[in-house]
Simulated assay, not measured.
Amino acid sequence: MAHLTFSHAPMGGGKSLAALVRHHHVGARGMTGMLIVMQPREQGMVASRLGVSAPAEVIDGDTDLWEMISAAVREDGVKHVVADEAHFFAPEQIEQLARIADELDVTVEAFGLLTDFRTRLFPSSARLVELADRLVTLPTGPLCACGEIATLNARLVDGVMVTDGDQVLVGDVTGDRVRYEPVCRSCHVAVGATAATPAR
């Protein structure tokens, strides 16, 4: 019986690397796998910050995953699907992934963030929590600047942490005007409270 698994970690937690490793293992066992991603930056690739990458099928929020993967099962014998950046998927696409596991007997492993920079669940991550057969917190937890294990994500704009704004705003972990850092809850609360304090 196939399962739907959701593996999550904060920024820098090794999600894409874990997705690439799983996809590699599937191929090494002689099975046909499919790597999919909704990625606003580099088209056609899943890439880890450690320098490992692989070609992927790039989707958008309107892609019918049931139709796409059903065709791949019929035409290419796909037995396993790895979905990276799953927090960017539409909730309806998560439901399609669950249906693919249930009705096509295709194992689906989704990798992504659990919460946004405001500590709120992404809608698709919430749907994965509701539907997944298995929930996995990846063990490769990044460190907060204070040295504790990071469990949350912080958005920095021009080096200043912000707690308001659009849920999705493309940035990076280094270099950009908008960037993201993994943080522990204590630091997120402390810096967030400071940012929210009006100047006197």
Rank of each mutant, 00 (worst) to 15 (best):
G12M: 10
G13V: 02
G14K: 01
G14H: 06
G14M: 04
K15A: 01
K15D: 03
S16F: 06
S16M: 03
S16D: 07
S16E: 05
S16H: 03
L17D: 07
L17A: 09
L17T: 10
L17M: 12
A18F: 08
A19R: 01
A19S: 05
A19I: 06
L20N: 02
L20P: 05
V21R: 13
V21D: 07
V21A: 10
H23K: 02
H23A: 05
H24F: 12
H24R: 11
H24P: 00
H25I: 15
H25C: 09
H25Q: 14
V26G: 00
V26D: 01
A28L: 15
A28R: 14
A28T: 15
A28H: 07
A28F: 12
A28G: 04
A28I: 13
R29W: 10
R29I: 10
R29V: 11
R29L: 15
G30R: 08
G30I: 08
G30P: 06
T32A: 07
T32R: 15
G33Y: 09
G33F: 05
M34A: 07
M34F: 05
M34T: 04
M34L: 15
M34G: 02
L35G: 03
L35D: 05
L35N: 05
L35R: 04
L35H: 06
L35E: 04
M38P: 01
Q39S: 13
Q39D: 14
R41K: 11
R41D: 13
E42Y: 12
E42P: 02
Q43S: 11
M45H: 02
M45A: 04
V46W: 02
A47K: 14
A47H: 10
A47I: 14
